[in-house]
Design a protein around this nucleic acid. Structure first.
Lengths: 344, 344
DNA sequence: TTGTAGGCGTTATCAG
DNA sequence: CTGATAACGCCTACAA
């Protein structure tokens, strides 16, 4: 059936033959601001059309070292917060002609190391990383040393010479705690987040500072750790409610955990919003729609994604300044779950 | 500072020099089942270690035509259903050494066309596609004609010679409608989904069949269309409740819309679960946690993702059978929002 | 303004 | 079992 053709992909050389010019001319004609006569350019355009030529980035990458792809490595795609963040990243990068490899580590550092390695093989020009629990600093710094810019997003691990774009966790937690204190709560718990994770450390710091300012000593039985899942939110609430002197309010590591805690509170017969307060972080869509709706800190994940992508683009563009730590503002959203909306 | 080195990446030739063999030997030694002496293989392994060599897929792709990447093009990353689907896809492909380009069309067909084109430039070996509203069949068939396998996932457009992996929408909708009929409802609405979209057409068909079997005529005022968002769920519920003879139950295009409708019902003073029934499709995590919890059809998005990825791998492996339409089973989950859990 | 030629890193062919 | 060498498709000095 087929004729003697060997290959099926159309290359520059085919276009060149069709247009009656050299491959160099075609290559130049395809680039915007190059010195090629309008006439030739038009002939090339027609030839491209006719042959169905498609640019081969692999060949270009081999030659130029640029793939125009970046990796976005996150810990949990099923968390709407990260979905929004990913969407922000993609919007910015897409507009600049970059393609995004979205990879989900599931918060497993071993898996993350393999994924980092794969991303490098695939020649990503840069990386946006929300590091998994227990991240191996070495595997990341190898990437950085290869000269590819890295931006840590939303969370970070220390001792890595790269930019960080994250919300101001400490300030947020302080504000949230102050609000609960103002509503009259004295026994306030802080539930979940894994030991040693940057977001927990920072949020716990803000919480401690606010308590200290109010003259309330820190009680470690009120601040249990736990992986950030909905189920653990429920679990940890039951845990702190079982102690001798249970809290009247809990701050959860994030909304997902708070929603789990909300469910558990309902099962325990607690009247959230009057007897008891539950608050979270992130302000995911579900937070406004739960019953009772959730008091939380609104973090605009999409804009964090956009900011991180923009910063990465700047680095790819040659910006060689010292690593920056960008803090994205957030604000308190008072809803029903703390009772504050009514009493205020 | 730096010495006279020109390039920074370590190539096969560097490893070869270090090991005192040829590049061809190194290349072979790095492949599993090849005829290379254990001794040489070991020398190569050490040299790789020492030089910090990293495989360059771009160069390999240029030579072999295989990138070991696939594209996953979905319509809405912020829908947990697709997040789960993506996670299933990634699990399977990752286990087979493939990398996934996850791309989000936002359900815009123009954007999708550009993204398809970019994916081709990046040399994906295959594509998993959940087509956007108004998909240009031509842009997809171009991809298929280039010899790359395509699998449509979850939704599909007609007249495309490729596999389809999707839930059995018609059967599901029929079962859901029958359940509502059994509970005594005679005026049942079907809210949302865009006109002409495969999932709406199929679900509406199942709904119509069940009504017909019960001798109830179809009333078009009860089946308004609308883009599948939470807000539209609320909007459409208000719309159908404003007509002369409003329904006593509504089936929503999917859970996200049902959750929006739930909120609107609450605002309208409807007692969902006793006076009024609201049901959805998908069984996203939120469905079990809403108050009242949502009666819905459980579709295991993750397993649809896995099945689709597996089918694509089979095609990449040379399976040239006729296009297949795989139907993934689903089942009814009765919860509070239809009142059925109590009455049964 | 356009053409020539060489090389990016890998794999496949074919000899040794 | 191993080595030399020629592609793959593109870009870019440099020459014309």
């Amino acid at each position: 059936m087929a004729s003697g053709r060997k290959k099926n992909s159309v290359a520059l050389v085919d276009v060149a033959r069709e247009a009656g010019v050299s491959t160099a001319t075609v290559s130049l004609a395809l680039q915007e601001g190059s010195r090629i006569s309008a006439e030739t350019r038009e002939r090339v355009r027609k030839a491209v059309e006719k042959t169905g030529y498609r640019y081969n980035r692999f060949a270009a990458k081999l030659r130029t070292g640029q793939s125009r792809t970046i990796g976005l490595l996150i810990t949990d795609i099923s968390n709407p917060y990260f979905a929004a963040l990913a969407s922000g990243v993609e919007t910015v990068l897409d507009a600049h002609g970059y393609m995004t490899f979205l990879v989900n580590s599931g918060d497993q550092s071993a898996r993350q190391s393999r994924q980092l390695s794969t991303l490098m093989e695939h020649g990503v020009d840069g990386l946006l990383l929300s590091p998994a629990e227990g991240t191996d600093v070495h595997s990341v710094s190898e990437l950085i040393q290869s000269g590819r810019p890295v931006v840590q997003v939303s969370r970070w691990v220390a001792n890595l010479p790269c930019d960080i774009v994250a919300p101001d966790n400490t300030a947020m937690a302080k504000e949230l705690t102050r609000h609960l204190l103002m509503l009259g709560h004295r026994r306030i718990g802080f539930l979940g987040g894994t030991e040693g994770r940057s977001a927990r450390i920072e949020r716990l710091a803000g919480y401690s500072q606010a308590l200290a300012a109010a003259g309330i000593p820190l009680d470690p039985t009120l601040t249990p750790t736990g992986a950030p899942t909905r189920d653990n939110g429920a679990l940890l609430l039951r845990e702190v409610m079982a102690i001798d002197n249970p809290p009247t309010a809990v701050i959860c590591y994030h909304d997902l955990m708070a929603l789990g805690a909300l469910r558990a509170a309902r099962d325990l017969g607690l009247k959230v919003g009057s007897d008891f307060a539950i608050v979270g972080f992130d302000d995911i869509t579900e937070a406004a729609l739960s019953i009772p709706s959730l008091t939380t800190v609104h973090i605009d994940a999409e804009s964090i994604g956009r900011a991180a992508a923009t910063q990465l683009l700047a680095r790819l563009d040659g910006d060689a300044a010292e690593p920056r730590h960008l803090t994205i503002p957030a604000h308190l959203v008072v809803r029903e779950s703390c009772g504050g909306a009514r009493r205020q």
